[in-house]
Design a protein around this nucleic acid. Sequence first.
DNA 1: TTGACAGCATACTCAGTAGTATGTTTGCCT
DNA 2: AGGCAAACATACTACTGAGTATGCTGTCAA
Lengths: 206, 206
Amino acid sequence: MSDPTKPKMSASKAEILDAAAEVFMTLGAEAASIDDVARHLGATKGRIYHHFPSKGALLAEVCLRAADFVLQKVPPVVQATALPADNLRNMILTHIPEVLRTLPYHKVIIQSYVGVQQKSTTAHERELFAQIQLERKAYESLFRQVLQAGMDDGSFRAQDVSVALQSLLLLINAPVFWYRPRDNEPEAFVTDLSVQLADMAVASLQ
Amino acid sequence: MSDPTKPKMSASKAEILDAAAEVFMTLGAEAASIDDVARHLGATKGRIYHHFPSKGALLAEVCLRAADFVLQKVPPVVQATALPADNLRNMILTHIPEVLRTLPYHKVIIQSYVGVQQKSTTAHERELFAQIQLERKAYESLFRQVLQAGMDDGSFRAQDVSVALQSLLLLINAPVFWYRPRDNEPEAFVTDLSVQLADMAVASLQ
DNA sequence: TTGACAGCATACTCAGTAGTATGTTTGCCT
DNA sequence: AGGCAAACATACTACTGAGTATGCTGTCAA
């Protein structure tokens, strides 16, 4: 999918992205300042601007990484010979734990989901956001194909595919909105949660 | 529910709230400035600060109005004698058109849903946000009761109520994320959409 | 040893923004 | 008429925050 987009990111850059994701999640991407991120790193602005040309680019790379996380895990579990409902279940059972494992990143990308359009973007930032759009479309079409296959063979009820797709995608991302890791959390909590949501999702389509 | 909170808002104040909702929706609540809102009104800051003590209070009142819209329409359609599934269907069929009718307001309140916590809030702002929290809880418990009733009489499958509730609420608000009013939109589009989502929601619980 | 460059920190600039202080107009009551 | 608020506009202030210019330090190759 993206061979040239994996130029083995440096550890320092990854550390910055982790901090940015957490700070952007907590304060909001627009409200948070570069100094906030630097302070959370125990560093200063200089470190961040050495690796990223602008705040918009930093935000974009956080979102890009969020998309990459699920794109590396979910597509492999799809099997051409399997039943659509089974494929969908496996996709969801993979998607949700991976999303909750990298929660800050997805809380940030969901903020942009609301439709907030950047103000003054450079050409480089627009390029990054275009790539995010591409990866998001690729991920959506993965679910769209399974949905369509299920409607074709009658295992899913016939309905507007786009509406069903958007609703499904939001349903499986619902935990991003309310989930908060607890220290005394049962071992199998995330697994149980994933199963419950997979059940709901499949049932909503039948 | 809130008799003292309806001191018949002036038309000018409502106009400011409408403009603020649109600008906050487009640019993001934090990134948008008071001057942006004023410019969209064809006015200046003075007008806004005459009606609202601060930007945070303006944002809070936008969110409060968003909650009020659905709280005035949905609760009346609930009937104690009706079947839970029928009650839920009617609630969704009322919720979605009302939300899409007042879309900018709900796009703003969803931004705060992502968990963005305000930085420095005055006592007055905290009071407003507390009231929003109350109305949101009241609205949620409306759905929770219907959910619980359905599980009690066996018409809904037994499962974790909180998870099901949060998922349901996000499902019926899904159009807020992607809906965009079209000029050549079919007459019954919103109605059809509401029916489809109501079907999905009820099916996901059975 | 010495350059030379990556990887930061420090110390600025400057545009934008929340908030205030103070005019100015318009209706309205008497 | 006249006065008196409400409902704004104008013109500030003070400050935050993105971006830059430059300085410092280790490392590594020649």
